[in-house]
Every structure is written in structure tokens, then in C-alpha cells.
Design a protein around this nucleic acid. Structure first.
Length: 190
DNA sequence: TGTATGATCGCCT
DNA sequence: GGCGATCATACAG
């Protein structure tokens, strides 16, 4: 049983931020929902885009915290990360799944779907549903069009952990975090 | 319920 | 020139 802090401190480590974000609500132009799945990518992490140092793609992750790092995945999808404490290296949290709460009709139209359980169940799906593209890269995530709403202090959140998905290096590091029992995960936790 | 595969392109070696 | 922090579809069992 874990309890989340009321406020997200993006100057903390990516692992701490990834865990704290579970239960937080994320909206872009008023469309979005509750974050139910995240993954941490830290320095000294072979699975991180930053592992081999600063490049044109990952430069946002080396910049100030509380920004959006957005990259193209498999040439097709966009994926959204929140930049964390950097201290000269890159660190971030991948937003993997939301429980849809606001703008359901807009998200369904963007996704070409009516199945609410598949609207935001995966990093590429989240970006498609929320209309996130590389135009949002580098933007502050505590400023419009982004909105982050912390959970209330009375809310009890149980967070589960497991290995990260879709990577070939550091497969066993348990830096995937999820809301226990959520029906909106990209994949179940074992 | 699970495994395989194609799509598609920017980044990095 | 190869390979993804993915997704949708097509099968088999």
C-alpha cells in the first residue's frame, strides 16, 4: 500500500516522480483523464534515450524539469514524457496510460474508436487521444494547454510495480508503475 | 489468450 | 543501414 504526496515535485528523481504521478489527472486543452500507468527512465539507465549522452532528439530531457519531452516512436506514434531532475544528465517519466475522464467524444473521434478501455491504454494511444505532437515538445506541463490536477490528500492510492514494457535493455528493472486494479492499463501487472 | 507481422521514419552508428 | 520506451490486425489454439 502506497500513498501519494499531494503535490508532484519534478525536481525529484524519475522513479519518485513516476510513482507519485499515479492518480494525478492530466488534461491537454481540457481533454484527458487520470494517469494510471507510468515508467521511469533515469541516468545510468541503458534503456533511456539519454544513456549515450546529449543528442538532438533528447535535448529536452537534459533541460529544466517540468517540461514535455515528446519523441516519435517506430516512425508512427508520438510518446509523452515528463522531464525530471537532470543535474546535467537526462531523466524523465513516460506517460503510458490514462483513465479517460474529460472530452471522451473528442478522444473517440481522434482515435476512431468507441471502446473507452482502448482510448488511452498505451503511450502512443495517449498522445493520439490528447492531440499531443512534437509541437508540444519542450512546453511546461504546469501551464496551459497542459493541466495537472493532484489527487486529494484523502485519496488512498495503491501503486503496483513491474518491469518496463517494450525495451531490450535493463528489462528487469521494476520501474513501471500502475494504479492497482485499474481497467485502463496498457497491459496487466503480473 | 496468446504469438506473429507489417507499417513507417527519424535518430544514431 | 539498422533499429526502436508502438499499435492494429491476422491468425492459431
Amino acid at each position: 500500500m502506497n500513498t501519494n504526496p499531494q503535490f508532484i515535485d519534478f525536481s525529484a528523481s524519475s522513479v519518485d516522480v513516476a510513482r507519485s504521478l499515479i492518480g494525478t489527472s492530466l488534461f491537454v486543452d481540457g481533454v484527458g483523464g487520470r494517469i494510471v500507468e507510468t515508467e521511469a527512465y533515469d541516468h545510468d539507465d541503458p534503456a533511456s534515450h539519454c544513456f549515450n549522452g546529449l543528442t538532438a532528439r533528447n535535448k529536452v530531457m537534459f533541460g529544466p524539469p517540468c517540461r514535455a519531452y515528446i519523441y516519435r516512436s517506430y516512425g508512427i506514434h508520438w510518446c509523452l514524457n515528463f522531464v525530471c531532475r537532470t543535474d546535467g544528465y537526462g531523466a524523465g517519466v513516460l506517460i503510458r496510460a490514462l483513465e479517460p475522464l474529460a472530452g471522451l467524444d473528442i478522444m473517440c473521434a481522434r482515435r476512431g474508436l468507441s471502446n473507452i478501455h482502448l482510448l488511452c491504454a498505451g503511450p502512443g494511444r495517449v498522445c493520439q487521444a490528447l492531440g499531443i505532437t512534437d509541437e508540444h515538445s519542450g512546453m511546461q506541463i504546469d501551464t496551459l494547454p497542459f493541466q495537472l490536477i493532484p489527487i486529494t490528500s484523502a485519496e488512498q492510492i495503491e501503486v503496483v510495480t513491474g518491469p518496463r514494457i517494450g525495451i531490450s535493455k535493463a528489462k528487469d528493472v521494476p520501474w513501471r508503475f500502475g494504479l492497482s486494479g485499474s481497467r485502463y492499463l496498457s497491459r496487466p501487472f503480473r
